[in-house]
C-alpha cells in the first residue's frame, strides 16, 4: 500500500490515458453541474446525452470515430433543444421529453437500419479504458474551451441564470448567453460519453455539484468543491475499478454517490448540532 498503490496502474499507457480523461471529464462536468442543478436543468442534460445516439450512428456509418463526433453533435443538439423550447408553448419539460425520446428511438432504429457496428453497452456505460491518445487530446481541448468560456462569461451567465429579466433590462444578450450555456453544457456531456457513457454522464454532472451545494454556503465555493469532488470521484473510481476489477464508469458514479451520501449525513449532523446548541 501507499505510493505503490497509486503508481502501479500508471505502468500501463491505457491507464494513464484513462486517468487523464476521467480527471478532465470529472472536473469539466462537475463545474458545469453547479450551474445545471441551480438552473434545474438536469432533465435537459439527460436529454442532451441521449439525443446524441442518432448523430453518432450516422457519423459512424460515414466512417467517423465517436469522439470526433462530439463537438458537432453537441452543438446541433444544444441549438435544436434551445430552439424547440423557445418556439413552442408546450412547456420546457415536455419539449425536452419529446426530443429526448424521439432522438433516442431514432438512434436505435438508425443503428439497426444502417447496420452500424456500435457497441451499445460501451456507449451507454462508457469505455474509458479504451480511450486513444487522440481522445485524450480531444477531451483536453474540450475542457479548455468549456472552462475558459465559463471563466470569461461567468458573471454574465450567472446574472442571466439568477435574474433573466434583470439581465435583459441591463442589455445583456440573453439569447446568446442561453445558447452559449447550452452549447458548453452539451459539449461537456457529449465529450464525456466515452468516459462514463450516456446513462452515467448525468451522475458525474449532477452528483458532485449536489454534494458540494450541501456543504458550501456560497456559489463560488460550491463550484470549487464540486470540481474537487468530481476530480476525486473520477480518479478514485478508476483506481477502485482497476484493483477490484469493476466496470470503470459505474464505479466512478458510485464513488460520486458515496461522496454525496457523506455530504448529506454531515449536513444533517451539522444541522442537528446547531439545533441542540440553540
Amino acid at each position: 500500500m501507499g505510493i505503490e498503490f497509486l503508481i502501479e496502474p500508471l505502468k500501463y499507457d491505457f491507464m494513464v490515458r484513462a486517468l487523464i480523461t476521467a480527471f478532465l471529464s470529472g472536473i469539466m462536468l462537475s463545474v458545469l453541474g453547479s450551474f445545471t442543478i441551480n438552473k434545474n436543468m438536469g432533465f435537459m442534460a439527460d436529454a442532451m446525452a441521449h439525443a446524441t445516439l442518432p448523430i453518432i450512428a450516422v457519423g459512424v456509418f460515414f466512417g467517423f470515430s465517436i469522439s470526433s463526433l462530439g463537438a458537432p453533435a453537441a452543438i446541433i443538439i444544444a441549438l435544436l433543444l434551445g430552439f424547440i423550447i423557445k418556439n413552442t408553448n408546450i412547456g420546457e419539460d415536455t419539449s425536452i421529453g419529446i426530443v429526448f425520446s424521439s432522438f433516442f428511438a431514432l438512434g436505435f432504429v438508425l443503428i439497426s437500419v444502417l447496420d452500424v457496428s456500435i457497441n451499445l453497452e460501451d456507449l451507454l456505460f462508457g469505455q474509458i479504458l479504451a480511450v486513444s491518445t487522440l481522445d485524450v487530446f480531444i477531451i483536453f481541448g474540450l475542457s479548455i474551451v468549456v472552462l475558459s468560456t465559463l471563466f470569461f462569461f461567468f458573471k454574465q451567465i450567472l446574472f442571466y441564470s439568477f435574474d433573466p429579466i434583470g439581465a435583459q433590462v441591463r442589455d445583456l444578450n440573453v439569447t446568446f448567453l442561453n445558447y452559449l450555456f447550452l452549447i458548453i453544457l452539451s459539449l461537456s456531456i457529449v465529450g464525456s460519453l466515452q468516459t462514463v457513457g450516456i446513462v452515467l454522464v448525468l451522475s458525474m454532472l449532477l452528483i458532485p455539484a449536489a454534494a458540494a451545494k450541501l456543504v458550501s454556503q456560497t456559489f463560488v465555493k460550491s463550484i470549487k468543491i464540486s470540481a474537487f469532488f468530481g476530480g476525486v470521484s473520477s480518479v478514485a473510481g478508476l483506481y477502485l475499478s482497476y484493483y477490484f476489477n469493476l466496470p470503470s464508469g459505474p464505479t466512478m458514479s458510485l464513488v460520486a454517490s458515496g461522496i454525496f451520501g457523506i455530504s448529506f449525513i454531515s449536513k444533517k449532523l451539522q444541522l442537528n448540532r446547531k439545533l441542540i446548541n440553540s
Binding site: 441551480n38 439568477f162 434583470g166 456559489f219
Partner: peptide
C-alpha cells in the same frame, strides 16, 4: 418570483 433563488449568491 422572476428570480431564481436556487443560486446561493452573496
Amino acid at each position: 418570483n422572476q428570480i431564481n433563488w436556487n443560486f446561493p449568491l452573496s
